Computed example of a mutant assay.
Amino acid sequence: MSLHLVCPACQAVNRVPDERLRDAPDCGRCHRPLFSGQPVALNRSEFERQLEKSDIPLLVDFWASWCGPCRMMAPAFEQAAAQLEPHFRLAKVNTEEQQELAARYAIRSIPTLAIFRNGREIARQAGAMGTVDIVRWARSAAA
């Protein structure tokens, strides 16, 4: 079986066989890695593309630059990306820059983590968490 994965660099949709997922696949269009072990910053259109076209769960950190707990959690979220990829796409959405997304998903407190699969939200957790808790929560919620 193949999965559709959206390239975080050029937004091209790539078809990757399940068995090649762990082989560090590159984008067929721009030839950059589909996974870098780092969360990707998304604007509205990039968020929509990841949400609608990718077959793996999208784990989003809704955050703001002025938020102390958000800044505290950032390194843990980066470490979680290294552990959860390639079975998840980890992304960051700055709620100050992407107010429409924050309003659409009723983000009332930050940081808020949300997992999306097949175009819809399947889990949400508000508040800062450590790496171990992020990984455990994401795997449990997406199971």
Rank of each mutant, 00 (worst) to 15 (best):
H4V: 03
L5S: 02
A9R: 11
C10G: 07
N14M: 08
R15N: 13
R22Y: 14
R22F: 15
D23I: 06
D23W: 12
A24S: 14
P25Q: 09
P25S: 05
G28H: 13
R29H: 15
R29K: 12
R29V: 12
C30Y: 15
C30A: 11
P33E: 12
L34R: 02
F35R: 01
F35I: 00
V40T: 13
A41E: 14
L42Q: 00
N43P: 02
S45L: 13
E46R: 14
F47Q: 07
R49M: 08
L51W: 07
I56L: 13
I56P: 02
P57V: 06
P57H: 08
P57N: 04
P57C: 10
L58H: 03
L59N: 00
V60S: 01
D61T: 01
F62Q: 03
F62W: 12
W63L: 01
A64G: 00
S65F: 08
C67V: 06
G68T: 01
G68C: 05
P69C: 04
C70I: 06
M73P: 03
A74D: 12
A74E: 12
F77G: 00
A80K: 07
A80G: 04
A81L: 05
A81V: 07
A81H: 09
E85V: 04
R89P: 03
L90T: 05
K92Q: 09
E96W: 14
E96A: 10
Q98T: 00
Q99K: 11
A102C: 09
A103Y: 11
R104C: 00
Y105H: 12
Y105M: 06
I107C: 09
I110T: 02
I110L: 11
T112C: 03
L113W: 12
L113A: 06
I115N: 03
F116K: 04
R120D: 09
A126H: 08
G127S: 04
G127Q: 07
M129L: 15
G130M: 12
D133L: 10
A138Y: 09
S140H: 13
A142E: 00
A143M: 05
